[in-house]
Simulated scan of single mutants.
Amino acid sequence: MSTTEHSTPDSAGPDAQGDVDEQNELLEKDDIFHILQNQRRRDSLRYLKKADETVRMRDLAEQVAAWEHDTTLQALTSDERQRVYIALYQSHLPKLDEEGIINYNQSRGIVERTEQAAQLDPYLGDSDDDEATDAQSTMLDKRGSYYGGVLGLSTLLLGGAALNLSLLSLLSVAAVGVVALTAFTVLAMDQFGSSE
């Protein structure tokens, strides 16, 4: 008398089916790195992570283009929008959809994250932190250029006054020193006040 044993999820234990499903959904590290090697795909995933809902593909493309060109949505040119839109439409979003990271309805122009996208989140960083870091970096660049400008102008004025050059000879070296010291003090106070 032979009996046929049917394998069911219950016969292998209560968590067996869940383990199989989880293993099927896990991405290999090489796949993760391949997916994230492109900045537009990373930016798309950052945008979708922040949105945490279904978004229009056009909105996604515009934001990725703005990040890529370090500008605002309003300042984007139609060429900048179009280049990013076409690349996302034809290549990057279908690739993410194929990997199961997003659901991309190309005909309706709708994109949404899947649960599988969470595996990539540790590699994306926090978009709020990135934006804060970008803003802070821009502010530091501006301050550096202000300091450089004041230093250059002060050097020019001091050198001209010391060498008795035509217009600059009207200024005393002490007066130029006071102006330069005042300018650096104002910049330092501004920096100290905005860092609090």
Rank of each mutant, 00 (worst) to 15 (best):
E196F: 07
H34G: 15
L36K: 03
I35N: 09
F192C: 00
G18T: 15
L93S: 02
Y47R: 00
L156Y: 06
T155Y: 10
R40C: 00
V173A: 11
A162H: 06
K50D: 15
E196S: 11
P94M: 04
G109M: 06
Y85D: 12
W67Y: 13
P122T: 05
E131T: 05
Y104N: 07
D129L: 07
S2C: 02
Y123R: 06
R58S: 15
L88W: 06
P122K: 05
M1P: 14
F33Y: 13
L124T: 01
L181K: 07
E112V: 06
T4V: 15
A188T: 15
L88S: 01
W67G: 09
A87W: 09
N164R: 10
V64C: 07
G148S: 08
E28Y: 13
V186P: 01
G160F: 02
L48R: 08
L165V: 15
L88D: 08
L73I: 09
L156G: 04
T4Q: 09
V111A: 05
S7A: 00
M57R: 12
V176E: 13
N164I: 01
M189P: 01
L60W: 04
F33E: 13
L26Q: 15
D130Q: 14
T8D: 10
Q82N: 15
D141N: 08
D134M: 01
V179C: 07
V55F: 02
D121W: 12
N164Y: 07
L124M: 12
E68F: 04
D121G: 03
L27G: 14
D30L: 11
T71I: 11
A162F: 09
I101D: 03
K29T: 11
G160L: 01
P9H: 00
L158G: 11
L171C: 03
V150Y: 01
E131W: 05
V178Q: 12
R108W: 04
L153E: 07
A12Q: 14
L73E: 03
P94Y: 01
T54F: 00
A174V: 09
D128S: 13
A180K: 06
L140M: 11
F192K: 05
S7C: 01
L93R: 00
A180P: 10
Q39V: 00
R58G: 13
T114W: 04
S137T: 12
T182Y: 12
E98L: 05
Q17W: 02
S11L: 12
Q37H: 08
D59S: 14
S154F: 06
L163V: 03
V179I: 14
T77A: 02
V186C: 01
A61T: 02
V20I: 10
V64W: 01
G148M: 00
Q63F: 02
A180M: 04
G125Y: 06
K49D: 09
L140C: 02
L181P: 12
L124E: 10
L167V: 03
D21Q: 12
A117I: 06
P9K: 02
Q191E: 13
L45Q: 05
S78A: 10
S166H: 08
Y104H: 09
E196R: 14
S127R: 14
L124A: 07
G148R: 07
L120G: 08
